[in-house]
Design a protein around this nucleic acid. Structure first.
Lengths: 198, 198, 198, 198
DNA sequence: AATGAATGAGTGTTCATTCAT
DNA sequence: GATGAATGAACACTCATTCAT
């Protein structure tokens, strides 16, 4: 990836992160990058592909960031919560201090999550988490592994745009904690354990 | 609200429900309503406001429907699940038999849930639900009422568009059940009750 | 057809006749008509349809003109030649005094000739001409009617753009005469009548 | 003409013959030639001039081919017909087995025929043909040599693109035959020879 | 009040040509 | 001489909004 491609992508990322895919025009990107409009099309087949490239970049950055900052000694569910928070933190950094609407966030999260080659990977990862939890006795063994993993993944995917659109980081942390407590321990009083939920 | 206003809104609702906000043009609405395009602007400041009015109407319809069909004798969490399912059912009815994409659904759900004047009301309702659960002993007393209610509300809001966009009603019910089981009983093994979750 | 539609079409015709379809932009037409670009699309689905409407108009004008000016008392081949000349004359009037390139002319002639509903009509007309010639003894009876008619039609279609692109009307008439003399009497010396043409 | 110039032109010819002038991009040509885009502009002022050069080349090739294959012992009009067919045959070879649209053909034929410096030459050639016909008694002596030659030349020029765009070679031959029969013997019954056509 | 014709800024994309290296 | 990245004018088409009638 040469300098110009990076220059274009940098401009595109900045604008996509602030205005989303639809509300960012190719003209805007060219202007932001300080280049001619046609130049963009020397590096990217079209607007969608440019966005795709940005998404992939974001995903990679997130992966790196998580890899670097995850504390693998943490027990579940703390480790999972940590991961969610790190992810959120990083995307926030990516966006910078300016505000972003929830709908823009949805576009972005969908983009980074929905990369088809990534989806399976994410699911696998979540599946491992569930299995580990069941082996170490922290997750109920009667839960269907795959279904549970899918639900957890979907859950995060649904919440992330909201969290990213909240201005106040403390509120975000509060919500993350709240949600995971709920997911982990449930609403019910423990003594009312179901005989067999499935 | 006079007849013309209703006529416009009825046409708008029909189209918004099928094609979403963006893919419904003002021309289409006028044509559907059998009136001139300009007339719409005598009753609604712009397209967005018209959509807002539709959203409010849908919300009211849903409220009525829930009020009519809720079985108040049900215990928690069955009652909550029932409510979610009723809501889904009703929106499905509203849309009719034709298929709707997930993105259209997101627009709709966001619209009906995000009405700022509605949010509080919904929260209050959910709060009552939590309090009741705690009083009857089905929800852990140590959970913060408000935070829990917020989380539950948000949860539904996030999942609903997904559920509405699934073609197969059985899959929907499966997912609803799955999610609520999770929320209710949590992931963890009951014997590992947290000493103090907050 | 109301005034605005005429206004648009008039502007479009003027420009199409001078610059051809491809080199006339929708912006240009709007500017020429003194209206907004979008207005054009209220009356014509797209640029092609607008061109189609122009073509149809031209064809009708030509038909009218021919109908009015044809001297039906003329014998063949004088009558056919007259028709060709009248057609040329009229298109010239349509275009006005300015010069037009041959390629533009080709576009135009193709457009007016190739209107699918018109093609058959033209062929039929030419066929009648051939039949009449054969009956009155002015056209060789051994010629295949249909093939001959097709050839004649094709011939005119191929020559017209050339004639229309010539600046000098006298040259045009000379060429028309020349061609038709050729077609009528052929190159060969009459005494060498073919026993069998091949 | 050095090697690079030839290399460029070869690539250009190949592409122009398949896709026509407009649908062949300079990028394509450079890629086909395996050189940089800018290099083309070191040898040809612009795309049009490059096309002109290609046209001139084709013309020369055709001339050579005709020179080599013409059977000079043939009588008129058979010789002229032969020439037309040879020309068509060669252009077909030039293009190769792939299909080409009529519009591409028009571009090509126009290009090869319209080269202004070539026109005179072609005319001269045709003139000789007419003169010879008149001397040998196969062409009516009262016809104006120059005018007749011009008409014949133009005739071929106009028909060739059509013939080249027909997929079926038999149909082509049929049409060629049909046209030349017409040109040679005319439509009229020989006994009605005009006293003085001019 | 009702109209709907008119608007024009905005969209993504193409490609012949230029020019710094 | 050779390069190919950079260019930007040009293209057809859309649609929420306005405003004269």
């Amino acid at each position: 990836m040469n300098g110009m491609e990076q220059q274009i992508q940098a401009a595109a990322e900045k604008l996509f992160l602030h205005y989303g895919f639809r509300k960012t025009s190719v003209d805007q990107i060219a202007r932001e990058a300080g280049i001619g409009k046609g130049t963009i099309y020397n590096y990217f087949r079209n607007k969608e592909e440019l966005f795709g490239s940005c998404s992939r970049h974001w995903r990679n950055l997130i992966d790196e960031y998580l890899h670097k900052h995850c504390d693998h000694s943490l027990e579940q569910p703390a480790r999972w919560i940590q991961k969610v928070e790190l992810r959120l933190q990083f995307i926030r950094k990516l966006i910078g201090p300016s505000l972003v609407t929830e709908s823009v966030m949805k576009e972005l999260v969908e983009a980074t999550f929905l990369l088809s080659d990534h989806e399976e990977e994410l699911l696998e990862e979540t599946l491992l988490l569930v299995e580990e939890g069941q082996q170490t006795g922290s997750i109920r063994p009667e839960l269907d592994k795959l279904e549970t993993a899918k639900t957890l993944l979907q859950m995060e995917r649904l919440w992330v745009p909201r969290w990213l659109s909240l201005a106040d980081w403390e509120t975000v942390c509060e919500e993350v904690k709240q949600l995971h407590e709920l997911i982990w321990y449930g609403l019910h009083l423990p003594e009312q354990t179901p005989a067999a939920s499935r």
